Computed example of a mutant assay.
Amino acid sequence: MVRTADTGLARQRRRSAWLFLAPMLAVLALVAFEPLARSLWLSLTDAKIDKLAGRFVGIENYVGEYGLFFTGESWIDPAWAAAVVNTLRFALVSVSIETVLAFAIALVLNAEFRGRSLVTAAVLVPWAVPTVVSAKLWDWMLQQQFGVVNFALAALGHERIAFTTDYPMWSVVLVDVWKTTPFMALLILAALKMLPSDCYEAALVDGVHPVKVFFRVTLPLVKQALMVAVIFRLLDALRVFDVIYVMTGSTGSTISMSGFVRDQMMENGYVGFGSAASTVLFVIIAACTLLYMKVARVRAEGAP
């Protein structure tokens, strides 16, 4: 009799949960699933910007002479391959640098010192600046003739450098690191604030070196929060568009997958082909996310 009552209560709780989730799921279907489904349908047509009601062509935008893969001359479209490589390189380099810097900043902000609140507010300023504004700001600062960076280099007797021309990818990475490192630092700092103090007090009493304390105490305890911060940044980096477009345009050395989609749709007018590229972009991001979560789960379960 008790088991029957518990089962009925569990069913009632599930119904209540679905009832509360229904509005959110409806909104999610409108703002996420519907555009995704429409993009998938357009990728199966030869729709153009002036004729969205294109004819059904199946997977020709994905595979075939004018598709993304197995074009006849190569197994992948060269322009799309360059966009994929640029995006992955940008994501790996920027997220790696941001993770290291963010951890260092979070450790500093977690320490007790005078004026910590002011320093914390100053660190968060880059994150508060809109991406387009920060990209344009750095574009001006890195300008070869009148930029403040080259002005400082010239004052030191160094030759002026065309950063966005000679080092386009590194210039974009620099701006992204400056912009988004505070976001990761904030997430890691929140995790550091929740750590128990008795672990550090015991390490201090035992005379454990601070480096060992970091690797054996701090890092394992904030691992979950660190993984969340990394996956958030990785997702954002894989769909990067604005900072690259503002600073370098759609050049082959820096164009991202999102930039490739934009060029195919807006510049060339190939909505169907661009939708196919956007669908592949979605699959790549989903695959990277699932792979990262799988690896992180295996490491967490295998940890002592």
Rank of each mutant, 00 (worst) to 15 (best):
L52D: 01
N110E: 12
T120W: 10
R233D: 03
F241Q: 06
L40A: 14
R160D: 02
Q264Y: 02
A121L: 13
A185K: 08
A37P: 00
W138T: 14
L42S: 05
S39I: 10
T7Y: 09
R297H: 06
R89C: 11
L204W: 01
H209V: 08
F113L: 13
P220S: 08
D50W: 08
A22L: 14
V108F: 12
G302K: 07
E34N: 02
A237E: 04
Y292Q: 03
D139C: 00
F56V: 11
P35K: 10
T279R: 03
T4L: 14
P196Y: 09
V125H: 08
A111H: 09
S253D: 15
R3W: 12
A135M: 06
L30M: 11
D6W: 12
W178E: 00
P304F: 11
V85G: 08
A37T: 04
T71N: 04
D198C: 01
L92T: 15
M24N: 10
L28D: 01
V177Y: 03
V148Q: 02
T248P: 01
V2A: 15
L118A: 14
A102Q: 00
P196Q: 10
R239N: 10
V57Q: 06
V57H: 07
I188N: 02
Y66M: 06
F33I: 14
G8A: 12
A83Q: 04
V298H: 09
A185G: 05
F33N: 00
F282A: 14
V85F: 11
P78S: 08
F103L: 14
F20K: 06
Y62T: 02
T180H: 10
T289F: 07
F241S: 09
R14A: 13
T180D: 07
H158M: 12
P196I: 11
N110K: 11
N61A: 09
L290F: 15
A82G: 12
V175Y: 02
M293D: 00
E65N: 05
G54P: 11
A128E: 05
T99D: 10
D236R: 01
S74H: 04
V85Y: 05
F163Y: 13
R55K: 15
F273A: 07
V261S: 01
M293E: 08
L19Q: 05
G157E: 10
G147F: 10
S250C: 00
S94C: 06
A152N: 02
D6M: 13
W170L: 15
Y200H: 13
A22E: 03
L92G: 09
F215E: 06
E301P: 00
A276W: 05
A111I: 09
V173Q: 08
V129K: 12
L281N: 03
F70T: 03
A111P: 00
T254Y: 07
P220K: 10
L192R: 01
I244L: 07
G207W: 10
T248G: 06
M141I: 11
V132A: 15
G67Q: 06
K294Y: 11
Q144V: 13
L192E: 04
A17Q: 09
I284M: 14
L88D: 03
A128R: 00
L40T: 12
V205F: 01
L174E: 04
R55V: 07
N150G: 04
V217K: 00
V211F: 12
A185N: 03
A135N: 04
L226F: 12
S278M: 11
K294D: 07
C199D: 14
D50S: 14
A296F: 08
W75I: 09
A303Y: 07
